[in-house]
Design a protein around this nucleic acid. Sequence first.
DNA 1: CGTATGACCCACT
DNA 2: AAGTGGGCCATAC
Length: 118
Amino acid sequence: MKPTAPNSPEPRNLFQDVHEVVRLIPAGRVSTYGTIAHYLGARHGARTVGYAMMAAHTAGQYVPAHRVVNRLGHLTGRLHFATPDAMQQALEAEGVRVVEDRVQDFGQLLWDPAVELV
DNA sequence: CGTATGACCCACT
DNA sequence: AAGTGGGCCATAC
């Protein structure tokens, strides 16, 4: 990869934090980029969270990126999965109803780490 | 080494 | 009230 700085034993990039938070999302629940970003303390970091999702496949651990949607409950990243329907099928497999790439009862299924994770 | 791109959200005019 | 631009991190060429 790339040689890290001599004083950086653990490069805790924001991407790593995002990946870890996403991994904490329980099955059957969904979260949003803005919510995670806000939890990390980055008001304008929502975009960075989205970038982290795309780079999720670079993480050593599995990241349930299918449980992360935009604030509108829209499956924005469905085209980035192995198949266009992989995200929707994964959500439905967990009991999440998805219609036209839109999560039903999104407000109820929304998982906020700052609230649920106390 | 510098430039460009990529799953978004909020604030301002 | 609606529309537009700005702000952020990391990786690849």
